[in-house]
Design a protein around this nucleic acid. Structure first.
Lengths: 338, 338
DNA sequence: GGCTGAGCCGTAATCGTTTACGCGCCCGGG
DNA sequence: CCCGGGCGCGTAAACGATTACGGCTCAGCC
């Protein structure tokens, strides 16, 4: 409530001096400094962030755009991004697009109008054109997962090819030859990379690729159930299924259990993302773990560099390793520790 | 980038006219209106939200404070609150306190300095004193779950007493007489109410209350495992366990499975919150479902009323019914549909 | 004694909007 | 013919900070 003017008056100085005391931006004599601090204390003064933002032309705010925070992976990212950003003095405006391109566009406009200093966005279907309004205003952007075209944006990602390869090879190593795959939305680089990893692992093992075994999911457990059933209904059903995220893998396990199949004896299941939750399913779910904390920290670090103007001009893409975590849903309780 | 000044110049009018065209706040002749709109179009002008906020003394921003968005229930709330707020034109500043009172206090100060128009906060341990800086600035607040003391804040909540009663009665109805309970943090009204519901249901069935059967959890699945083991290690272990949230219930199921116990034949398990996830565990988890969407909408509605100044002066507490959802983790596949 | 330069501060412009006032003009009624 | 009242618009003062300039004082030195 108290304004800087009030503090200045109470301390008997000008607002300039108060400002400089607060920001330590020019020398102020000891006695004056003391008087100012006293006055601030008395009035419980806090600088008005809005006014400051207007004048400084920075808001100490970043936007965070995610498809759905109800999916554990995105919630995890949101938590980490917020923590790191906050430690650096930034607040986070949270935008949940619900997988809607339209809403994403809406958010982008709003975030620009709000003059966010930067933007972390995690989206699969968005293309560079959608970001045009943001880039035009020179607002730095970092994306999780590389975007569709050969755009040039700072990004953090995992090696999706290798991760999918590892997951598939893991199943092959356990003796499976007929391996189903429940993917996510098909219009993304992520999709292509993971499918390539899956197919390559099969090829290396001399197993023919069967398109019927690859089913599209939507990252919700219900699609895991539906596509899991579909696969199990095949004349020659798979003996193992690789899902593009943990929730769908849980759905698959349930579909299997509902038919009296045992996991992993009758059907092995492996998920993706490696959310903590997976350690607590029944049976514990094998998965491929993404280093969310490291990725989030890296994303914010890159963003802050851009904001500070340390402009590498060249877009940087940081690729992190994903880690296969074998649990009872593939290797059984006997072999699978954890 | 384009400022209102630029638009005014291009259209050959004053900034006042531009402003009035934008906000439709006073009559402007058709020709001028057209010229202004044209100019805006040409320059791709968007009002600067920061400047506007400074002048209007409102930011069209609300703060959202949650303990941990990685817990499905809070993620669900965050998604709904954001959606409703956004539909009303408000942006959401996301604050993840990680259960830390210190961080909560930090966020509250920051949100006030940022002049958020309102605040939705969901916290168990916080007391009214922590909110003092917010209330002093007249910033409206709505809380999820009533707070510790007999404070007076607008709130949405479920009938925790009844919900816990129902869950316990459900287990009793299935023939269980020795029922364990894994609670959350013990320093909240929520805790007291649920324990009261649990105890009362037992009493009504003539079952003596056994303090050894009530164990504190922390809403993480790991505590479900730990406390589940503890309970199963009892000389006379419970035949059913009621957990204060779904994640801990999953932990309990895993602990049971790890010992070769069958759910629900050897141990019935019921959770709390009713997150969608629970329909996909193995077996599907019985739970008590909170009407998150309705609660979130109500919270925002109350907040907006306060913001608009429609001040009931009296704090309002809206209590919603929770719904018991019986699934295979208690009633078995035979009886339990779904 | 005058000049210079270093310390310290205050004045006022500025960021980009909104909005209280007030001024012209035109029209209709007395 | 004059006057009152709408209607339409512009001028300029906010909102609450930051910051470019410039002014003053005093010490040191020639």
């Amino acid at each position: 409530m108290a304004t800087m003017r009030a503090v200045a008056d109470l301390a008997g100085v000008s607002t300039a001096t108060v400002s400089h005391v607060i920001n330590e931006t020019r020398a102020v004599s000891a006695p004056l400094t003391a008087r100012v601090l006293d006055a601030m204390e008395h009035l419980d003064y806090r600088p008005d962030v809005v006014a400051r933002s207007l004048r400084r032309r920075e808001t100490l705010t970043i936007g965070l755009l995610v498809p759905s925070v109800e999916i554990p992976f995105f919630a995890h990212v949101a938590a980490r991004v917020e923590a790191v950003a906050n430690a650096a003095g930034y607040s986070v405006i949270f935008c949940n697009s619900d997988w809607s391109l339209e809403r994403e566009a809406h958010y982008l406009r709003d975030l620009v109008a709000r003059r966010v200093d930067g933007l972390v966005c995690i989206t699969l279907a968005m293309t560079i054109e959608h970001l045009a309004p943001v880039l035009r205003r020179q607002t730095p952007v970092v994306v999780f997962e590389r975007m569709m075209p050969g755009n040039e944006l700072d990004a953090v990602e995992i090696d999706n090819y290798r991760a999918a390869y590892d997951a598939t090879a893991h199943l092959i190593g356990l003796g499976h030859a007929r391996i189903g795959c429940i993917s996510g939305h098909t219009n993304s680089i992520l999709y292509e990379e993971r499918i390539r990893g899956y197919a390559t692992a099969l090829a290396h093992a001399g197993i023919p690729f069967d398109a019927a075994l690859v089913r599209p999911g939507d990252y919700q457990p219900s699609s895991g159930v539906a596509q899991g059933r579909w696969l199990l209904d095949l004349p020659t059903p798979p003996t193992a299924i690789f899902a593009f995220n943990d929730l769908m893998a849980m759905g698959v396990m349930q579909a299997a259990h509902a038919r009296g199949l045992r996991v992993p004896e009758d059907l092995a299941v492996i998920g993706f993302d490696g959310e903590p939750l997976t350690a607590y399913t029944s049976p514990p779910l094998s998965t491929v773990e993404q280093p969310v904390a490291a990725m989030s920290a890296a994303a914010i670090a890159m963003l802050l560099e851009r904001i500070k103007g340390d402009t590498p001009s060249q877009a940087r893409v940081q690729t992190f390793p994903a880690k296969l975590v074998a649990r009872a849903s593939t290797v059984g309780y006997a072999q699978g520790a954890n």
